[in-house]
Structure formats: structure tokens, C-alpha cells
């Protein structure tokens, strides 16, 4: 299991804003093992979302190299779970979960089987024909997670998928995610601003600094699996790690505060879409 699934070398992303150049991600090096669950934690605007979007193929890097080892060329390389509501309002829950498979031309019967399996995994069997507007926020995000897993990619990219949820829902979804993941052991890169969440989920936590976004530290999370969230909270090792991570992160958060409010435009499909680097939710601790 020691093979490297993802290798990044000197990955850099710069945006041109008017006559200035902003470096969102700077010379990032990273190796992720096959089947590893990695959480990237950092203050708002540290470029972690940009990094994930590059890995997802939604942005192109300015410099550097990405290597992703493929085991099965018939599988998609990656599937992303987005932070904001991203399931298609015009598709039923079933259609949403099966979207990736449909795009890949998988036959209808197989899609139905896979969708059924994930529907029951996320406890939404009875909502298969429902449309997203009939679902709560937590249910929508479950569908979004199921859509990614159902696509059966080589790696899963998750961009603060639970950030917008209330506390109870968040815990339930974290538990469900752990359960699904433990059944598949896919390589996951999960972005979050919550140390708590990172420790609950990850095998390894990477801390990012802001302006420019680089990696500051990489910490192995040696908490045993399967993990139970309620027990973890009172675990002494968990608290030790929490304190340690916070001591590293604290300084970064303070630095990030100073340079907050930087806005720039990204050159994408849509000309009238600007992205604020500081629009990720505030660090909640």
C-alpha cells in the first residue's frame, strides 16, 4: 500500500488581476498514497479550493506537474463533491446519483443497481424519484456524496462538502462518509477549515498557509479505525493532535486576516463570474 497515487511537484497557480499577479498556490509538493484519506486544512483564501480545482481539471496550473497513477483506465480519474449545492435541480435523486455513469455510457441496468446501492447507503431509498427542491440541505449533500462515489473514480475530491450544514447534520454525514469510505478505501483529498473534521476523517492532515498558498506541515493521524465520532471527542490522543494542529494553524489564521478581502477574477468558461478568495467560511473553532 506504499505506492504513491498522486504526486504533485512544484504546482503553482497564478491569476492575473488587472496589472497584478496573484499567486494562489505556490510550489506545492505532495505525495498521496493509494487509499489514503488526506485532509487539507487552512485559513480562508489559502488556495486550497484552487488546488482541488486544478486536480479536478477545472483549472489549469501555471507551473508544475501532476501525476495520478491509474489502476483501471476504464474508471474516471476523479470525481468532485462541491461545497455549494451542486446537484442538478432538474434531475431526480436517482438521475443525479447516476449522472457520472450515464455520461460514461454505462448500461441502464448497471446504473440502476449502483444507484439503488448508494440510495440505501445514504438512507434515501424512498426519495429516489424526488427532486432536489423537496430535499433538505443535508439530504442534498448526501446525494452529492453518493453521486461521486457511484461514479467509482480513482480518486475523490471533496471541497468542504459539509461546511454549509448544521452541526447535527454534519456529524451524521461525516459518519456516513466514513462508513462508505471504509467500504471502498478510495484515495480521498478532503478540504476543510475545521481541524475537528480533519481529525475525524483523515489518515493525514496537511496544513496550508495563505498568500501564497503553500504546505506548512503534514501530520499523520494515528487514531485507530473504524472511528466513532462520539468517542473520538473524548479521546486523549485526538485532543492532543487538535491542540498541536491549532498551534500551527493559529499563526496562519492571524496572517490571513490581515490580507483578507482580496478579490480577483478567474478566467473560465464564464466571463462574468468573479471569485472571492476570501469567501470560504470563517474558521470556526
Amino acid at each position: 500500500m506504499a505506492t504513491d497515487k498522486i504526486v504533485l511537484r512544484g504546482l503553482t497557480k497564478q491569476f492575473e488581476v488587472k496589472d497584478r499577479t496573484i499567486t494562489a498556490v505556490k510550489a506545492v509538493d505532495l505525495s498521496i498514497r493509494e487509499g489514503e484519506f488526506v485532509c487539507i486544512v487552512g485559513p480562508s483564501g489559502c488556495g486550497k479550493t484552487t488546488l482541488l480545482r486544478i486536480l479536478a481539471g477545472l483549472e489549469t496550473a501555471t507551473a508544475g506537474e501532476i501525476q495520478i497513477m491509474r489502476n483501471d483506465p476504464s474508471k474516471p480519474l476523479n470525481s468532485m463533491v462541491f461545497q455549494e449545492q451542486s446537484i442538478f435541480p432538474w434531475m431526480s435523486v436517482r438521475k443525479n446519483i447516476g449522472f457520472g455513469l450515464k455520461c460514461r455510457g454505462v448500461n441502464r441496468r448497471t446504473i440502476a443497481e449502483v444507484v439503488d446501492r448508494y440510495l440505501s447507503m445514504i438512507g434515501l431509498q424512498k426519495f429516489g424519484e424526488a427532486y432536489p427542491h423537496q430535499l433538505s440541505g443535508g439530504m442534498k449533500q448526501r446525494v452529492s456524496v453518493a453521486r461521486a462515489f457511484a461514479n467509482d473514480p480513482e480518486i475523490l475530491l471533496m471541497d468542504e462538502p459539509f461546511a454549509a450544514l448544521d452541526e447535527q447534520n454534519k456529524i451524521m454525514l461525516q459518519e456516513e462518509l466514513l462508513k462508505i469510505w471504509e467500504g471502498s478505501r478510495k484515495t480521498v483529498i478532503f478540504i476543510t477549515h475545521s481541524i475537528d473534521e480533519a481529525l475525524i476523517l483523515a489518515d493525514r492532515v496537511i496544513i496550508m498557509t495563505s498568500h501564497p498558498g503553500t504546505f506548512k506541515a503534514s501530520i499523520e493521524v494515528d487514531l485507530p479505525r473504524p472511528r466513532r465520532i462520539a468517542e473520538l471527542r473524548s479521546d486523549s490522543r485526538f485532543n492532543e493532535l487538535f491542540t498541536y494542529l491549532w498551534s500551527i494553524l493559529r499563526e496562519e489564521v492571524r496572517k490571513a486576516k490581515v490580507s483578507e478581502g482580496l478579490t480577483f477574477r478567474d478566467e473560465d468558461e464564464h466571463d462574468d463570474h468573479s471569485r472571492t478568495l476570501g469567501d470560504e467560511s470563517k474558521l470556526v473553532l
Binding site: 477545472l58 470525481s79 473560465d268
Partner: peptide, 28 residues
């Protein structure tokens, strides 16, 4: 919302999928 185009791209939608599964129903 631009995110739907991102999703379609990330999930490997073909040009036909963009028209028939994303743009058309979304713009209905």
C-alpha cells in the same frame, strides 16, 4: 449557476450531455 457546468465537466459529460442533460433542462 456555473457550478453545474463544473459538475458536468468533472463528471465527463460529452458535448451532447452538455446540451441535453445540462443546458437544455436548466434553461427550460
Amino acid at each position: 449557476d456555473k457550478i453545474y457546468l463544473d459538475v458536468a465537466k468533472n463528471y465527463g459529460a460529452s458535448r451532447r450531455d452538455f446540451y441535453l442533460r445540462v443546458a437544455l433542462p436548466g434553461a427550460l
